[in-house]
Design a protein around this nucleic acid. Sequence first.
DNA 1: ATACAATGTAGAGTAAACTCTATGTCAAGA
DNA 2: TCTTGACATAGAGTTTACTCTACATTGTAT
Lengths: 123, 123
Amino acid sequence: MEYSIGEFSRLTNLGIHTLRYYEHENLIMPKRNSSNRRCYSDKDLAWVEFIKRLKDTGMPIKEIQRYAELRAKGDLTLNERMEMLTVHCESLNEQIKVLQEHMAKLDDKIDFYRQKIERTSKG
Amino acid sequence: MEYSIGEFSRLTNLGIHTLRYYEHENLIMPKRNSSNRRCYSDKDLAWVEFIKRLKDTGMPIKEIQRYAELRAKGDLTLNERMEMLTVHCESLNEQIKVLQEHMAKLDDKIDFYRQKIERTSKG
DNA sequence: ATACAATGTAGAGTAAACTCTATGTCAAGA
DNA sequence: TCTTGACATAGAGTTTACTCTACATTGTAT
C-alpha cells in the first residue's frame, strides 16, 4: 500500500508538519509521484514506528539521523547499527534503573506525608 | 550551615545561572545577607535535591512551581501536595512500564540484527 | 470553467529549560 | 589605594523539536 501524507499522518499520529520536518532532517525519504506528492509505503510505516520507539526512549534526532544514514547504506552497516542499538539499550537500562530509584524515594515521601497528615488531623 | 551561591552550585551540581533561574521561577528562595548576597541553607539543599528528583522524573518546571508555592504556604497544603505526588507517581509508573516495553522490543531487534549478521558473514 | 481541499516549499514562530552577556557592586588581599 | 574575584541584576541568546504561516500547485467534484 501507498499513502499520501495526510493518510500517513493519521496512520502514524504524527502531524503533517512533523512528517515534513522529519524528511527535512533526513529521517524519512518517501517516494514522490508524478506530481511531486509524497508516497509513503508500508516499509516507511514500520520505519517511522521504529523512529518513534527510539525517540520515546530518549534518543535525540541527531542520533536517529545517524542511524537513518547507516540504514540507507544497506547491509554493510548492520554491525554499526547493532552497536548503536546496543549502546542505546544500555543507557535505557540505566535510565529505567534510575527512574525506579526515584520512584521508591517518592513513594517514601508520600508515606511520610500520609503519616504527617494523620498526626495533624488528630492533633 | 550556610552557603554562598558558588558553594551551593558545587554542592548541587547546578550552575550558578541555573540557581538564579530557579529562584527567578520561584522554585528556591534563599535568604540574603546584609550585602544582598544569597545564603543557602541545608534545608535549601534538601529541597533542591527533591526538585531534581521531580525534574528527573519528568515533572515540568511549571508544576514544580505549583508544588513550591504550596510548600511555601505550610502544613495547610499537605493534602494537596500529597495528591500531586501521588498523581506524579502514577504517571511515573506508567512511564517506567512503557520504557520496559520499548526495551523488550529493542532487545528483539538487536537479536534480529545478530542473526542477520551471522547469516551474512556465512553467506 | 471554477471552486476547493490537499499538497508543495521556504522560512518564521513557539515552548521549555537553560546559558550567557553586559554592566555594576563590594569585600579582601597586595 | 588598587585590583581581583565572587556576586548582583536585567535581558539577550541557545538548543531541541517541533508547529505554523504565507503563498504556489494540483486533482477532483460541480
